[in-house]
Design a protein around this nucleic acid. Structure first.
Lengths: 308, 308
DNA sequence: TTGTATGCGTTATCAA
DNA sequence: TTGATAACGCATACAA
């Protein structure tokens, strides 16, 4: 009797309507993914990981890109809720946005926040990268080669990855028992323009650094542009270490040393955490810390000349 | 009377349920975006354009990545239909997939296919890049500098962008009244590995090319790897022209000439076409052709030595 | 096992 | 203008 219905359904080309099913069951089998900077290759990798993992369990990904605009973040988050997504992955540009934080407190659905600190009391899950050790290893590597003045260019000081990288930077100096000249620390923005400006400023100073640690993958292009303009040769005139192992760092001549991380895995883990909470498998709010590691390459291999 | 309801709604924190609305109205305000290679920066740019445009009209983007697997493409397409999306953007890895093509014939929703030929009789809209002129300009530029043996490495011959680029390549030689040695045309795959293998083979031949035209942005890393390995210097030992203006081509030393295109715009246009059909504004099946252009840089600037 | 009724939260229709 | 009611397509609960 059941078989007759099935065959009739096939004959008529019946397709279940997932929207009607969602209305009835209250589960949309969809996660919202809010990303602030889709142009960053890091973002696509995370999305790829999350989509791969979510798809296995039949979940789809609703993607929005806010281009770093907090108002858009807020609106998109609101839309996710109205669309009755079963979970949200948040990869915002800023931290401590009032409107977002209030959402994080009384949330109707599971949320995973990526590499951003969440306010105490919110029950959002988190996935962090452990930036400090990778950076510390990079700085130790530079110090070993005789660099004394190592500049650090990175984003706004209130952003968790920036704070984390800064603490790794400071830690390495502490271990080496060397005092940091605060003038070499340039925090402000993760955009290429900032990398360019700060590099120009650093090179122009009387006590120019012999090495630059670039704390953000998009900063690197700005830094390189400035170095090219001033005729500095990476890997002999100046040592460079960047963040994230992208095509540019791998295939630049000389290859550029980086602090690497597995962004695809971050996406997978985030989706996994949502699935654990969305389905029945005893999911709860949690936090995962993923490693970073230093990959030395030619851009920072040369020993610095003493006195130079 | 209406005002009283509104204020009560606000007081109770009422939020319309978009799923219920979808069930009733039959419109989900969602587009499905099927991409085959999310790891390609080109894909993210297209997605960014489409999402930006769709959002303005209140449409969301449901994203799936098939990693070039036709079976996944098919499954994802099917899921889109069950989810009652209002339109679909298709950016597949292959062309002429049986299962996909049959979907394209009797489609329930508007579809826009990106840079792939659709079977005659299907009423899918299309957005193409006009690859040939950009490539032809690049080849003309190389011929002017005295290059006689210009290799062309690109993807599978049945892929529209590859055919299109090949025809631009051939056209430039025809105009210059030079016969192409078929041995320099290497079609097969758009992946870095293929670029590496073919470059190694080309360099090893007795009549090695003096210039390589790289027909696909991901091929470039493989080509560069092979050149580095063999100690060839880009821009003096050999001329290089690649496709797509990405970070690597802009900041490589010397900067690499490229055939550029506006991928963000492709995304915008695709979303626009779907919106025209999804809403009432007289949308119909159409086709848009977007330009490509040649950007000469140092990697191909030097004149080739006569006889060399 | 098989059939029938109810409700999910909307929008649309029709009466009052 | 305002109010009551049906229907979108499914899943569930209950009756036959």
């Amino acid at each position: 009797m059941r078989a007759r219905v099935m065959s009739a359904a096939r004959e008529l080309g019946y397709e279940p309507d997932l929207i009607a099913r969602s209305l009835r069951t209250g589960t949309s089998h969809t996660f919202g993914f809010l990303v602030a900077d889709l142009a960053n290759p890091i973002s696509s990798e995370i999305i790829r990981g999350a989509e791969d993992r979510a798809r296995v369990d039949g979940y789809g990904l609703l993607l929005t890109n806010s281009e770093g605009d907090p108002a858009l973040d807020r609106a998109n988050l609101h839309l996710f809720l109205q669309r009755r997504v079963d979970g949200i992955i948040l990869f915002t540009a800023h931290e401590g946005e009032r409107a977002i934080e209030s959402q994080l407190r009384n949330l109707a659905v599971p949320i995973v926040v990526l590499d951003r600190t969440v306010p105490t009391g919110s029950d959002a899950s988190t996935v962090f990268f452990d930036h400090a050790p990778g950076i510390a290893a990079a700085v130790a590597h530079l110090l070993e080669r005789g660099h004394q003045r190592i500049a650090f260019i990175s984003g706004p000081a209130d952003l968790r990855p920036v704070r984390d990288r800064l603490s790794g930077f400071e830690e390495a100096f502490r271990v080496a028992k060397i005092v940091i000249d605060p003038g070499v620390i340039r925090l402000g923005s993760l955009l290429p323009k900032f990398g360019y400006e700060q590099t120009v400023a650093l090179l122009g100073a009387s006590d120019a650094p012999t090495a630059i640690l670039v704390g953000g993958n998009r900063l690197l292009t700005g830094v390189l542009e400035a170095l090219h303009e001033r005729g500095r040769i990476v890997g002999s005139d100046i040592a460079i270490v960047s963040c994230d192992d992208v095509d540019l760092t791998r295939f630049y001549r000389p290859p550029i040393s980086v602090v690497a991380r597995d962004t695809y895995q971050m996406g997978r883990v985030a989706a996994e955490m949502l699935l654990d909470r969305a389905t029945d498998r005893e999911g709860t709010v949690g936090s995962v810390l993923l490693p970073t590691w230093f990959i030395p390459r030619e851009s920072s291999a040369f020993p610095v000349r003493v006195g130079g």
